[in-house]
């Protein structure tokens, strides 16, 4: 099973330029979404028939802190003018939506928050997700970024 990760504090813009380069929406994303987007690119960039709409791939994102880093940024903006561009990223599942939009994944997308990186529990939840009658595989990610400069970010594809 291919597993990819992005080291804490890495230059995400540099990775984006090397890996993608032509998806300017990247620059609007919060750190959590940038990490998820780049991890998914690493996993699926060579997929055959990529960008053809499909319903059989799920995107399941786990973390401890959800979108806390961006919550803090939005809360700061509230002191002046609340920023709609920041507010839309104040949900832990937006990263899964970004991956879906990029790749036209029309299947299940979910965000879970767990107390710690508990791989057996993550594996169990992903196994249960295959109870869906159409889902055949899933992009699974653990992305925990309590701040915009520190994180753990790893992802893999699990097949039914």
């Amino acid at each position: 099973m291919k597993e990819v990760s992005i080291p804490s504090g890495a230059n995400l813009t540099a990775i984006y330029r090397e890996l993608v380069g032509d998806y300017p929406k990247f620059f609007k994303m919060d750190t959590l979404s940038k990490l998820g987007f780049l991890l998914s690119e690493m996993l699926v960039r060579d997929d055959e028939g990529r960008f053809t709409p499909r319903e059989d791939r799920a995107v399941i994102v786990f973390s401890r802190n959800g979108c806390l880093a961006n919550d803090i940024n939005y809360a700061k903006s509230m002191e002046d003018f609340p920023s709609p561009a920041l507010f839309v990223y104040t949900l832990p599942n937006i990263v899964a939506g970004e991956i879906s939009i990029r790749n036209k994944y029309e299947g299940e997308t979910s965000a879970y928050v767990l107390d710690k990186y508990d791989r057996p529990l993550i594996d169990a939840i992903v196994r249960q997700a295959f109870q869906d009658r159409i889902t055949r595989d899933a992009i699974v990610a653990w992305i925990d970024c309590p701040s915009d400069s520190e994180w753990t970010a790893t992802a893999w594809i699990k097949t039914k």
């Binding site: 995107v59 990223y89 994944y105 029309e106 299947g107 299940e108 979910s110």
Partner: peptide, 11 residues
């Protein structure tokens, strides 16, 4: 029960 994504827009 089921969950599906629009794969269209985040907001």
């Amino acid at each position: 029960g089921v969950i599906r994504n629009d794969a269209n827009h985040i907001s």
